[in-house]
Each structure stands twice: as C-alpha cells, then as structure tokens.
C-alpha cells in the first residue's frame, strides 16, 4: 500500500467510468426487458385495461389494478389453443426423437469411418440443411400436398427432423471421443449400432442436449410451414393458432399476451427437462 500522489486521482476516474458504464448497462437492459414485462403483466390483467393504459404514459402501463387469470382461461378453455399446444408438443417430441436418431447416425458415420468422399458428403449435408428452410418451404409444401401429406402429423413432423447444425455439433463431439473406446467395445463383441447408441450416445450428453434443443426450438417456433401445410384447425400448431387469435378478435391483447407467455415458457421448461434428462445420461468423457 504505497501511495503515490497520482493514485487517488486515477481510482476516482476509474470509478466515474464504472458508474457511467453501469448506468448505460442498466438503461439498456431495462429498455430490452420492458416490452417483455409489458407482455407478462398484460397477460395477467383485464384485457380492457391493456388498451386504456397504453396512452398517455403512466406507471399504470406496467402496474395492473387487479391480477386476473381470465386471459389464460379464455385462451386455454374457450379457444382451440389448448389443442394447438398439444399438437405442437406431439410434433416437437416426435421431431426430436426422429431427428436425434437420424443426426446421431449420420454424425457417427461421418466421424468414425474413413471412406472416400466423406468430407464431401459432410459438406453437402451441412450446407444444404443450412439453407434456411423458409426459402424452399413453398415448393416443398406443394410437393407434400401432392404426396397426400397435407393436413397430416407426418407432414408437420418431417421437415423438422433434418437439422444441419445438429449433425455438425454431434460429429464434432464424436470426433473427440477416443477411438480406443470403440476398439475396446468391438473386442467385447459390440455391434456398430450398439457402439453408437450405448457408447457414443452416452458419452455425448451435452451435444445431444444441444441438438435436441435446436430441433425442438425449430419446430416449436415454426410458423410458415404449419401455415402452408395445415388448413384443418384441429391439426394446427400453437404459433399459427396464436396468430389466428390475433386476427380474429381485434385487439384482444390479453389473450394474445397470455398465449405469448405460454409459448415462451414451454421451451424454457423443456430446456430444463432436457438438460436434466441428458445430463443424467452423460457419464463424462476422457481417457485415463
């Protein structure tokens, strides 16, 4: 603690800059979160109050006069949203299951075996699945309708199972698993599928979680595809159903906001569940 005359001045300068930076960080953070808070609070207040408190600016914008669940009740009981949520769940879970199996198999083949054209196949698969799906959704929807897949669960699920980043992630992870593990398993007489599903899959918890999330979120937030492929309301998925409630009753913001909160919370909860599930499967990697 030797004090030089310059030191106190400098600490004070650092402190002012920290104060300014903190103030900016708080303001920016508040600015980003405020619309989300408005949605959250709006979902728990009477619908009419959302409209009356919009303008002029006052604290009532985010302070409700009463807390009510009527928006959620309307949404889940009276409209078809509950059914759409269930459809979305089925589509997401099926897509994750099929997509993970497919991606893991492809990633395993591309990580473990040496064969001519391996890198080319890898590049083609990843590049073509990285072209945003929306770009070719319209012609694909026409094909699917021609094949009789319009208004079917299969039609909703299939496009979501293929995810280039999922294959990319899993392959990167598999490349890090020592070959000696695989050789040991082969000496023990394990078949290739067994090595993949009981050895590699078990060692790859985090990569499987990431890939599952990618597939899940892709399907959960899908809007254009269900809009194109499904016309039957009974089969419709939650985002399109939510957009439908927006169009139907002009300015039923309470119900819209409640739907938005439900659509937001489900992936958050699912992420948590997935992480627990795959976290348990992972037994850690590393060769001693």
């Amino acid at each position: 603690m030797t004090t030089t005359p310059a030191l106190p001045v400098r600490t004070r300068r650092v402190k002012t800059s920290t104060v300014v930076l903190t103030a900016v960080a708080v303001i920016v953070g508040a600015g980003f979160v405020l619309p989300a808070i408005w949605i959250l609070i709006g979902s728990f207040r009477p619908n009419a109050e959302i409209l009356t408190t919009m303008s002029p600016l006052s604290w009532h914008l985010v302070i409700p006069s009463e807390v009510t669940f009527e928006n959620y009740v309307h949404l889940l009981v009276d409209s078809g949203f509950a059914r759409a949520l269930l459809n979305s769940f089925i589509v997401c879970i099926a897509s994750v299951a099929i997509g993970l199996a497919m991606s893991a198999m492809a990633a395993y083949a591309l990580a473990v075996y040496q064969f001519p054209g391996r890198n080319l196949i890898f590049a083609v698969i990843v590049i073509s699945f990285m072209v945003p799906f929306e770009a070719i959704a319209i012609p694909l929807a026409q094909q699917f309708t021609d094949w009789g897949l319009g208004n079917t669960m299969t039609g909703l699920i299939l496009p979501g199972v293929a995810n280039g980043l999922a294959i990319f992630n899993l392959r990167q992870y598999f490349l890090g698993i020592p070959q000696s593990y695989r050789e040991a398993a082969m000496i023990d007489g394990a078949s290739e599928p067994r090595i993949l599903f009981s050895l590699y899959a078990r060692l790859s918890g985090p990569a499987l979680t990431n890939s599952a999330l990618l597939i899940f979120l892709g399907q959960w937030t899908a809007f254009l595809w269900p809009l194109l492929i499904v016309s039957d309301q009974k089969l419709q998925l939650a985002p399109v159903a939510l957009a439908g409630t927006f169009g139907e009753h002009a300015a039923d913001y309470g119900q819209n906001f409640a739907g938005t909160i439900v659509l937001t919370l489900v992936p958050a909860v699912s992420m948590f569940v997935l992480q627990r599930f795959f976290g348990r499967l992972s037994i850690g990697s590393g060769e001693k």
Partner: peptide
C-alpha cells in the same frame, strides 16, 4: 437483453 430471444417471434410481432 437475452430475454427477448426467448419470446417466439409470433408473440413479439403481436406485442
């Protein structure tokens, strides 16, 4: 700042 990412785009468009 991350929180808006979690809101699906249909919801944020409506809001």
């Amino acid at each position: 700042v991350f929180i808006p990412i979690t809101v699906p785009i249909v919801g944020s468009s409506i809001a």
